[in-house]
């Protein structure tokens, strides 16, 4: 009897003495970093968004960096930029440093980005031009969209395809995919897409010829985002070509067609 009482007392002590605890998670906070997304495309000015990254405790807003010196050296001179924050509605991006003149196809062979912020931090990056890409034809199949392009050659090439369907002028469905192609892999990009044609007013397809650096950057952004929202995946560092910061400085060409 004495032993039984002792046992019951021990169990009661355990049950009442231990309160349920919630695990508090303190998010590690790192220093903010300068982020550059500089895009060079024929037909548009040289456009750069220079921001600072948010710490995890900050509100999620775009932290634009003002009054930096941003220029690009090319084989034909230097391109200066102006610090004006504006929204490019045609490209769907925010810009805070842009050149006055538009880029011309074949006018340059390389670009070197130089940024010095007001507080003396410097960023460097470089990119080479890629050849223009043209969409030869688009097949709208039941379960996919196939885009045929005119890029040939033995060098590996990197492409991005974006397809959007519209209903009453608004995007109803969109998808983008990255492609790595080389000799023998053909000149077409296949995008699986189901039930995308029903009820759509129009379909546009955009094909980008991009640099390997941009391909890696976009892949790492996608992977990092996936890992962020899904614990099943491993975290991935952003693959950047910016020395002293984070982001991408790249040149690409594109072609856009209305397929329907």
């Amino acid at each position: 009897m004495k032993q039984t009482l002792c046992l019951l007392g021990l169990i009661a002590g355990v049950m009442t003495g231990c309160a349920k605890l919630d695990v508090e998670v303190q998010i590690p906070e790192g220093p903010s970093r300068l982020v550059v997304e500089g895009l060079l495309t024929p037909g548009y000015p040289a456009e750069v968004m220079l921001t600072e990254s948010n710490t995890l405790q900050d509100e999620l807003v775009l932290l634009a960096v003002w009054n930096a010196r941003v220029s690009m050296d090319t084989d034909t001179g230097t391109i200066a930029t102006r610090n004006i924050l504006y929204k490019k509605t045609d490209r769907r991006i925010m810009i805070n440093y842009g050149s006055v003149d538009t880029m011309r196809e074949g006018a340059h062979s390389y670009f070197k980005l130089n940024i010095t912020t007001k507080d003396g931090r410097t960023l460097r990056a470089a990119t080479k031009v890629v050849s223009p890409v043209r969409i030869k034809s688009v097949e709208l199949n039941k379960e996919n969209i196939v885009t045929h392009h005119d890029l040939l050659g033995n060098e590996p090439r990197y492409l991005r395809m974006y397809a959007a369907t519209y209903k009453q002028g608004k995007v109803a469905m969109s998808k983008s995919m990255l492609y790595q192609q080389g000799p023998g892999t053909g000149t077409s990009c296949v995008m699986p897409l189901s039930n995308y044609q029903s009820g759509t007013d129009s379909i546009t397809v955009t094909l980008f010829h991009i640099q390997k650096e941009y391909y890696d950057y976009l892949t790492s952004v996608e992977n990092a985002n996936s890992a962020f929202s899904d614990p099943l995946l491993n975290p991935e560092e952003i693959i950047s070509n910016i020395t002293g910061g984070l982001g991408i400085f790249t040149y690409y060409t594109m072609d856009k067609v209305r397929a329907k």
């Binding site: 490209r91 769907r92 991006i93 995007v171 546009t204 975290p235 991935e236 952003i238 984070l246 982001g247």
Partner: peptide
């Protein structure tokens, strides 16, 4: 250790996308 805002240029639905910085 942080986040930054990534912009997908030249895509019809573009938009600002927060990206984690590892």
């Amino acid at each position: 250790t942080g986040l930054y805002i990534h912009q997908d240029a030249d895509l019809g639905d573009g938009g600002l996308q927060p990206v984690p910085v590892y």
